[in-house]
């Protein structure tokens, strides 16, 4: 068996497990019927989408350390980063003088895989106050609409907007 076949099989198995997990969570019960139907459906879907969905080697998907960083990131993101950004934008909305200073700035990124790029872009857009408008993949820049432009310097924008996200994204996907 060649290495490509092996990696393809690995992708399918990992994806089947992942889809089956979602199926079990969504149906919230484990009976024999659930297991049989769930496994059948998820394996069919996995075979269909494996080559499109998974571009990196499947060993990354079962690396527990990456999952640990991912869960840590989710906790940090939802409990601290989001609240801070929400309170900042809510203050700007309700303030009588509406203190905004919007503009589109360039933010460099240093990750390699597409997944990490998307994770950082999604995180930037999901925090109120910053929206990614365009990605330049060849020069590795995000163009970010920022509600309060402190500086147009790339280092300061990177420091303020995407440094935390990139630190986690590198550990999760790269």
């Amino acid at each position: 068996m060649g290495s490509t076949t092996l990696s393809k099989l690995g992708k399918i198995i990992v994806l089947t497990a992942f889809f089956f997990l979602i199926y079990v969570i969504a149906s919230a019960s484990i009976t024999l019927l659930d297991v049989v139907v769930g496994l059948a459906a998820s394996s069919v879907v996995a075979v269909l989408v494996a080559e499109i969905l998974v571009k990196s080697p499947p060993s990354k998907l079962i690396d527990l350390r990456r999952w640990g960083w991912y869960i840590l990131y989710a906790l940090h993101y939802f409990t601290v980063i989001e609240w801070r950004a929400h309170i900042d934008v809510i203050r700007r909305i309700l303030h009588p003088k509406m203190p905004i200073n919007p503009g589109i700035v360039r933010v460099p990124y240093h990750v390699v895989t597409d997944y990490a790029t998307v994770l950082i872009a999604n995180s930037i857009t999901n925090t109120p106050g910053t929206v990614v408008v365009e990605v330049d993949e060849s020069r590795k820049y995000y163009y970010v609409h920022w509600i309060d432009v402190i500086s147009t310097k790339e280092e300061i924008c990177y420091e303020k907007i995407s440094k935390t996200f990139e630190k986690y994204a590198k550990r999760i996907f790269d």
Binding site: N122, T125, V131, V132, V133, Y143
Partner: peptide, 30 residues
């Protein structure tokens, strides 16, 4: 949700929706 935001923001900027008031617009300059 962010995927949709990316799409509409990019489309709006390409279509020339005004960014005024603005401190800077590096994307337009580039």
């Amino acid at each position: 949700a962010p995927t949709g935001s990316h799409a509409v923001a990019r489309a709006a900027h390409k279509a020339g929706v005004p960014v005024h008031p603005k401190a800077c617009d590096l994307l337009e300059e580039d």
